[in-house]
């Protein structure tokens, strides 16, 4: 190779360097997702929820637990209370903001447990097959054949009540789902010619797993994550609504909904805002899930 050629190649690859954003747009899966405007908006809303949860104490205009009976049942847009105040005069907006934190961390806990317990066995079962696969799948079948409520009651019985333990139980209940989905995805990707091509190159198994198989099994896992997240969110709201979740005075969308229900005739807005918050978050998760599912396709 002449010096000229080498220079030209050096220059061309320097010029061709592309940013992360363009990579995302060109990558087949993320690219297809990004072209779906509705899904991107929904994803934006979820990101916003996360940001609000992280910065909740700084964003909330009032102390969410501060009672001010003078403001009790204040209407939305009244002085000092953008979304009104509840029966004890606590600021609804501030309580919604801290409740967001509760909702997301509960969801994250359930998801985290499900992923931690579900993904590694699924990967191993799918890639190695044989007796490993059979053992993993039988255990997973056994767990799935128990009624979820029994598992929940057993776990809570062992660990004690409380929102955290409820979500932990939820995570365990969802784990077999992840085992199945990951295993199915790995089984499919494992048979792809590009995996055989990597083997023909002499790439070690672990490397094939990390760089070829896992990236291609991500899309279905992401779809499942969005579904499980939506379910966990509703479960948390439901438990709190029934008084089994967060304990007063802490706020949760579910408990706010429950409290507001008692004062439906004094101030109907008290049920509207937490209800809308729950609905929007779950809707956004479902839209993102649909968008992810639509974006899966053979990268051709």
């Amino acid at each position: 190779m002449t010096v000229d050629q080498a220079d030209r190649i050096e220059r061309e690859i320097a010029e061709s360097r592309v940013g992360v954003w363009r990579r995302f747009r060109e990558q087949p899966f993320t690219g297809r997702f990004l072209r779906n405007r509705t899904a991107v908006c929904a994803l934006g809303y979820l990101v916003l929820l996360v940001l609000v949860a992280v910065f909740a104490p700084w964003i909330a205009p009032h102390d969410p637990d501060a009672q001010n009976l003078g403001d009790a049942f204040a209407d939305p847009f009244s002085a000092g209370h953008l979304l009104g105040a509840d029966n004890l005069g606590r600021d609804v907006l501030s309580r919604l903001i801290v409740a967001d934190r509760v909702a997301l961390s509960a969801t994250a806990l359930a998801l985290g447990v499900a992923l931690l317990v579900g993904v590694p066995p699924g990967l191993v079962a799918g890639y190695f097959g044989g007796w490993v696969d059979r053992v993993v799948m039988r255990i997973s079948d056994a767990v799935q054949s128990l009624p979820p409520l029994i598992i929940a009651i057993a776990l809570i019985g062992a660990l004690g009540p409380g929102l955290r333990n409820s979500m932990l139980a939820l995570g365990f209940i969802f784990a077999p789902n992840f085992i199945r989905i990951v295993r199915a995805a790995v089984l499919e990707v494992r048979e792809e010619t590009f995996v055989e091509a990597s083997r023909s190159i002499g790439t070690p198994t672990l490397r094939i797993m990390v760089f070829r198989i896992i990236p291609n099994t991500l899309p279905p896992i992401l779809v499942q994550i969005s579904l499980v997240a939506g379910f966990s969110l509703i479960a948390e709201a439901g438990l709190s609504l029934l008084g089994l979740g967060v304990q007063p005075p802490s706020a949760s969308w579910g408990s706010m909904l429950g409290d507001g229900y008692n004062f439906l005739f004094q101030q109907p807005w008290l049920v509207v805002f937490p209800g809308v918050a729950i609905a929007l978050a779950v809707l956004a998760l479902n839209i993102v899930g649909d968008g992810l599912r639509d974006a899966i396709g053979r990268g051709r």
Partner: peptide, 12 residues
């Protein structure tokens, strides 16, 4: 390989 579509990892 025969099929240049399936023998190259699309996510790479």
């Amino acid at each position: 390989f025969q099929d240049p579509y399936s023998s190259l990892d699309p996510s790479s």
